[in-house]
Design a protein around this nucleic acid. Sequence first.
DNA 1: GCTACTCGGGG
DNA 2: GTGTACGAGTAGC
Length: 879
Amino acid sequence: MRFQLLDADYFLNGAKPVIRLFGKTENGNAICAFYDKFQPYFYVKQGKGSVAALKAMKEITNIEEVKRFIPLGYKKEPESLLMITVDNPQNVPKLRDELVQNGFEDFDSDIMFKYRFMVDFGVKGMDWIEFEGTKAFTKMAKVTSYHVNKMKKIEKNENADLKFLAFDIECLPADLKRPMDSKKDPIVMVSLSFSPDHKNQKSLVLVAKPVSSSGVQGFRSEKELLEEFIKVIENYDPDMLIGYNCNNFDLPYLLDRMRKHGIQPNFGRCEKNVFSKTFGMMQECIVPGRIVVDPYQILKRDPWVKFHRYNLNTIAKELLNEEKIDVEHTEMPDLWNGGREGLNKFIEYCRKDSELAIRLVLEKGMLDRFFELSKISGLLLQDTFGGQSSRVETMLLHEFRKKNFVMPSRPSKEELLKRTREREKKELKGATVLEPKKGLHTEGCILVLDFRSLYPSIMRTYNVSPDTVLLKKENVPATKSPTGAYFVNQAVREGIFPSLLKELISARGRIKKMMKSAKDEEKRILNAKQLALKDMSNSFYGYTGYIRARLYMIDVANTITAHGRKNLEKTKKLIEDNFAVEVLYADTDSVFLKTNIKDLDEAKKEGSKIAKFVSDKLPGYLELEFEKIYKTFLILTKKRYAGWEFEPSGDGWVDKIEMKGIETIRRDWCTLVSETMEEVIKIILKEGDIQKAISRVRTVMTSLKNNEVPLEKLTIIKGITKSLESYEGMLPHIELAKKIAKRNPSEAPVVGDRIGFVIIRGNLLLSKRSEDPRYAREHNLQIDSDYYIYSQLFPPIERILSAVGISKSELLGNGRQASMKEVFSKNSKKKPAVLKGWESFVCKRCNKSYRRMPLSGACECGGDLMISYHGTLGNKVKR
DNA sequence: GCTACTCGGGG
DNA sequence: GTGTACGAGTAGC
């Protein structure tokens, strides 16, 4: 028999642990395999511990002396350790603690039993397993089950056919002013979406009301509804249970409501109930034998793609070009209690949410990457949704088993504290970021070159690894790192990290080659695989500096960044000494070079030439690559720039505006600001016309003054995070919330609401002049154009324009106007004084503020200028 | 500019 | 479950 491993756990048969593997066969049948011949064990180093005490412990079934390497620092020979076998996994923590108290040092003692098993059998998550066994008749699984005698991993690339079920609940709040309360507020609806179809239906909505129609099933009570929910899941038997934010909301809520009605939340694939665990702010729900997929959590943690907001509506709009049905949660009670029409709307609203959730997962191939991460790291699919460190550690565990290493325990509270304190003295130094040549660059193409996987290459080139660093001076061939640490040469021993990286990188190379001839489905999977490999290779450096890592080694982390800094310096020098280009900027692993080449193809040639030249002169695996061209480039500060990018594509070029670190969209800006910023940047980069950019801003200012901007574009949205009374300061949205509450107590905003407001004209304090846009329109209130110009529009626009030499007063039209020639002239040596950050020059007499010192040294009105910092006036400026 | 704290999603 | 868990953005200094 063969199956693909989806989930695993264990149960006790008397005192005997039985491993339980859940999976899917090649025919798409759910299956469960039991293995009862595996014993828990861990290692200790004797230290000051007493072996006699050890032998007296009755839970220990065997003690064996073994030789193992400990991967903290280079050791020539393995050490003598005691391998302790235990009757029951549950006894391990207690025993371990006792032994540690007794002076032993523990290893491999906090590895979950299922992973211990998988590692020892060389099986990773989503692997295919072939086994011999006999059919089992047991209550310990609800799917076809077997007792396994022999098993092994087999090579097979395809994935089994899986069943997906997405769900969404709707609750009815008893009190609209309070947050949802699972003790009081019932679940009135649950929608389910299936893939493939369930009984020829794509979806189903269960409703706690006696209504029924196609795709709608009514019930007399919440209790009956919940019981049916469990039945449908059991009946359909999905592998994946999908819900948007279901880990934090839907599932815990369902569990609470089921508990209230005395319903066992048993909708996994065995006798074990569904449960949720809380840690810190997060919750995670476990459905034994199935995989809980929460698209919200997956998207939120995705390091490659960022969204402005992560609510289902925004995400569905961005990814599926589809929106939720428009129902405010405050109208839910009315829809529920009103007529059939409202109820239908509510039902379809609910249905749509689970449809969107399942479509996100399936149409966007959201799980592809995690299937591959699972196969590479060894984690069960469910666990790949978590952090990077567990991926690294599980992969290491597999490698350690092969190479005779043991795994140190997770750091204790005390150890964490120690590390934090140590960190204050011996900080983790980061990468080099060169001070950029600020401003607009349009004279020639800007070449961007960067190092192909810099940190992995460094680790491989210099054999940097936790198990190759010399903890004390030793007489072995070793190389000194820029930090002064020594790492043994590869000939002595290839480090575990470099060797794993070698495998990951060469596997990625193979996959990328295969991708070239692949298409459609195959190509998609290969792409997911190569991304997962890249993800994994990039995790190793960060892991060594991650404070909770089992193999936390700050010296190793520091060595890596030190090599990176040295390498970047060397690269800069090599380029400056040998090519007629100017290094405008460099950050970590990339350099930005200004050329005088106008032609894209020629620029590309030059870029490749420089990349090759540098790569040839750098050691080992370090390789500089030509990445892209910017025809024009605007850099404001370190990490903040925009460029008109051209990327080679086939025979031609594709262009786009690329922005890094320059935010055009922020929650606390109205859309007018975002739009204007984008336009301004586009004009500057594509047309190189700063005057046009300025006049664009002036046009916006004018239309603000003339009341021509629609209120939607001026609405600022802020959330209410606590009760209105508990706000101490004056905040516009809070004052508005109070106003609304006074006008119409039934609409009073509550915690969690987001308030949209505009600022209207008047003599009151700013925060008192916030108004509901609808109310403002109905009562024909005028907006405060000055507020929008000076407080909203200007700060971000000014940051951009000041980088191209335009001051605020110039922008306002009351200062000297910079001519095109002047703006573009390369070296206007007579630079007027320019202040940093939020500083400005303010006239003592008329209060006019200047970003740059006027040439006269005084204000237009003749008044003295003062330096203002954060709005506080400081020293008088000498004329 | 830097640090501390808050909040996210869900109804 | 042989365990553990964040990070971006904003307010406050």
